[in-house]
């Protein structure tokens, strides 16, 4: 009876997982297929589902004619920089707000949230003026700092909610052991909050990876572009023609680093509170 139930559960799970995978992956697979189709087949109507002939022409075009390696490098640099900066700034603040019983915690938290309430488009012009006045055009910092700042409210709030769940006796024990507050944050709170950190890191990283508006405005030298701006330079030979094949190839190439980062970070999500030293 019990084993029978287990089997049905198992099957149900497999079906669900299969559903999830196809839901998430189908459009991406479509990109893969499009990227290896010869140009004519890409725009045929009705669309051919499987390519009749496999061609790597699009990949060659994207890599040979465009400095795609540079763009990926820039994107990784910018996204990593922004993620680290946002976490480095956000984690201490979240810790102080969650654990140090500051006066005005509620107000400060809300003030930080207010920073997230404006559409991004508002920042473009003032930031452009700053970037241009400071001579930061084409400098990765012109993207790293704004991306981090735009994500800091999110980082603080999510870390705040996790830090609050860390049992207080842990901290007290550490204080008795002579840890400083910074020591407690780095040595105890952060390791225990690995799932929250990994989650936040992934989400901030992807935001920075995909951002177009600022990157387009602040990066004018071709070698300084990030991936989304690079994709915008792909051309079908006329403003009205969309180079589907090349865009698909570019997407396939540029999704890989993201998948690798996610795979590396998501392992952390299962650790933390449930694994390791602490039990709730």
């Amino acid at each position: 009876m019990n084993s029978h139930k287990k089997t049905t559960n198992r099957i149900l799970l497999i079906v669900l997982v299969a559903l999830i995978i196809s839901y998430s992956l189908a459009p991406f697979l479509w990109q893969v297929l499009t990227s290896i189709k010869p140009e004519k087949e890409v725009i045929s109507i009705p669309p051919t589902y499987l390519p009749t002939k496999v061609s790597f022409e699009n990949y060659k075009k994207v890599f040979m004619e465009k400095p795609f390696g540079w763009w990926i490098f820039n994107s990784v640099l910018v996204a990593m920089g922004a993620t680290l900066l946002a976490l480095a700034a956000g984690a201490p603040a979240a810790y102080a707000l969650a654990r140090l019983r500051l006066r005005g915690t509620g107000v400060i938290l809300k003030l930080i949230l207010v920073g997230a309430l404006f559409p991004q488009i508002v920042y473009l012009l003032p930031l452009f003026e700053m970037v241009s006045a400071l001579g930061l055009m084409n400098n990765p910092l012109a993207l790293i700092i704004p991306y981090a700042a735009l994500n800091v409210p999110f980082v603080v709030w999510i870390l705040y909610s996790f830090f609050r769940q860390v049992p207080g006796d842990l901290e007290d024990a550490a204080l008795v052991d002579g840890f400083s507050r910074t020591g407690i944050l780095v040595k105890i709170i952060l390791p225990v909050s690995a799932p929250a950190l990994a989650t936040t890191a992934i989400l901030v990283f992807i935001f920075a990876w995909n951002e177009f508006l600022f990157a387009f405005a602040f990066m004018s030298r071709k070698l300084a572009y990030t991936v989304p701006v690079g994709i915008a330079t792909l051309s079908g030979g006329s403003p009205y023609v969309i180079p589907w094949g090349q865009i698909a190839a570019a997407i396939v190439i540029t999704t890989m680093p993201v998948v690798i980062i996610i795979l590396a970070l998501q392992r952390r999500i299962v650790q933390g509170l449930t694994a390791g030293s602490v039990k709730g």
Binding site: L124, L125, S132, F216, A217, S220, V229, A232, T233, L234
Partner: peptide, 19 residues
């Protein structure tokens, strides 16, 4: 030559002019 999109380029020119 940053973008095939006319709107994108107009935004870029406009941003520079406004600043």
């Amino acid at each position: 030559a940053p973008s095939s999109s006319t709107d994108d380029r107009q935004t870029k020119y406009t941003t520079c002019f406004l600043a």
